[in-house]
Design a protein around this nucleic acid. Structure first.
Lengths: 169, 169
DNA sequence: GCTAACGTTGAACATAAGTTCAACGTCAAG
DNA sequence: CTTGACGTTGAACTTATGTTCAACGTTAGC
């Protein structure tokens, strides 16, 4: 099949598919005499694998080293090893998230617990002092790799301030 | 104090401090007649706040819109609102991580559960089929912003394949 | 007066994972 | 034989968060 059909079947854009080929991630591609790329059915599954692995937190670089040239011949040991490490990464991240969440919850409580007779400045000082007091503890969790998970559909939780986005044309 | 001292006290690099000034994040800076920057004590706390907020998953853009010009005058409503949303973001991410982790665990089990009489190719097919079968389900969790957490100290879980790193000189 | 440490600037570079663009080629239908 | 959909390429752009560099200025101590 040609690139357009592969794009439709896999749900990826043609540019993304070409990009994967450029970086040596997708090798199952041939050329017709007219220069058009042509792919085997298998390519759909490979792309599915790639996006699934991405969702699990693997970088394209990692995926490249794990994907065998032939889907039938995996390096079991290496693969299981990588998966196991990735699971550990996720668990480390979960620990961090739990801490962050607790931190933010405490902060919100702190802010809302302002005694009615305390003025804003004093409350600010109280909250900041509390926060920075536990700062070092948080700073020490300087561990782990966290390149897991990158949905590009970022919401704007706060309002980013500037948009540019290549207007009109 | 000058930038070097501020850097020492805050634990950030001078270049990073200048960068924060460039993007309008750090405004408490004056100039000596010789052109040197000079900062008030407060700057240490502001930088502490910034890095703490970053660790909690806020982007510099978000932090900029939340940080008041004067640390004594916060916009309580907006702040609590942003914190609450960030907590929700974290919780959404935790859900995703739990799913990813379960997915990987299942995958490892699947791979290791190969019947001894099954050959590699058949096992590969079995595992892939299982994996892609639950793919759509995973694909539907297309929700949430995940720009949380970016320790730049990435480990190389798999071995990246190429290093360039501006050698020598 | 020289040297070392510190400061300044603007520009370019780095990373990851793509997207977008311009300029061009191919092909089937009308 | 023209039009539209599809394909090709290489280069530049994007986002976020900084770092690095070259070329230059300032200051304190010896």
């Amino acid at each position: 099949m040609r690139i357009g059909e592969l794009a439709r079947l896999s749900g990826l854009t043609p540019s993304r598919i070409r990009f994967y080929e450029r970086i040596g991630l997708l090798k199952t591609v041939d050329r017709r005499p007219n220069g058009y790329r042509t792919y085997p059915q298998q390519a759909v599954m490979i792309l599915g694998l790639i996006t699934t692995a991405q969702r699990a937190g693997f970088t394209l670089d990692e995926i490249r080293t794990l994907l065998p040239p032939d889907l039938k011949h995996w390096d079991h040991a290496t693969l299981v090893d990588a998966l196991t490490r990735k699971i550990a990464d996720i668990e480390a991240l979960q620990v961090r998230l739990t801490q962050s969440r607790a931190h933010l919850l405490r902060l919100v409580e702190d802010i809302q617990a302002r005694p009615d007779d305390m003025d804003c400045a004093a409350n600010a000082h109280r909250v900041l002092t509390n926060m920075l007091a536990e700062h070092p503890e948080v700073l020490d969790v300087t561990s782990d790799d966290i390149r897991l998970l990158d949905m590009t559909d970022r919401r704007q939780s706060v309002s980013p301030g500037r948009r540019k986005k290549t207007a009109a044309r």
